[in-house]
Amino acid sequence: MPSKLIENTMRVNRLPHIWCPGCGHGILMRDVAQAIDNIGLDPDKVVIVSGIGCSSRAAGYMNYNTLHTTHGRAIAFATGVKLANPELTVIVITGDGDATAIGGNHLIHACRRNIDLTVVVFNNNIYGMTGGQYSPTTPHMEKGTTAPYGNIDYNFDIPKLAESAGATYTARGTAYHAQQMTKLIENGIRHHGFSLIEGLSVCPTYYGRKNKKGSTIDMYNWQKDNCIDVKKAANMSAEELEGKIIIGEMSVADKPEYTDMYMKIIEKCGGNK
């Protein structure tokens, strides 16, 4: 028998999931479920939208209204769901490739509009489902099947990208720091506006093996040792922060939300009577 949380939030007959042993996505999906449960949202009023890729399998497992869409277009579908039914809580689960490569434009324009969506990016630094090609978040000079001598691209900093595009809540957590990640997702859902939470996952099968990162446990230990909370990082020098990853709440801003403004336009023009 699975735990009460899993029974209440997942389609138990679809489990165990297809993710590889040690994949961080399972931990991150539990964090999303825990955050929804902590807030006490009515499951009928929650919509999970996903695109394509390892991460996007989550929509098949979570027991809410779910929408598994085309590659990169999860945010576009979610925008439609939210505009048609602003009372719904719309959560997008997407991957690093789905969100920032194939769906890069959808991401920045949803940020710009400040529409009340919560986007959780399961970032495993690689395209896992298709065999380990490098993605926009594969770190510089790390390897993928399509970068056997090292990736010469520089990687995106997803929360920074979202913030500069106009997102009003940005954060980064990891699979290892599960409690913090849950809290960040919870804050993101509560935030009225566009929220982006990057969840650093672990891909032992492709990213780990290609880059000789050691065992699954070594990869989680890496997150434990190299991720620094944003508050602690504020008192550290650039030298001390070399090679480290900053986690926690990156930015929170207060700005009018898109569907609110849209409803005002409808009212002004005499609609909804």
Binding site: L15, P16, C23, H25, I27
Partner: peptide, 13 residues
Amino acid sequence: CELRCPDYAIYVE
């Protein structure tokens, strides 16, 4: 263990 199990195979009841 429950928080970090990716497969929901262990938990405290």
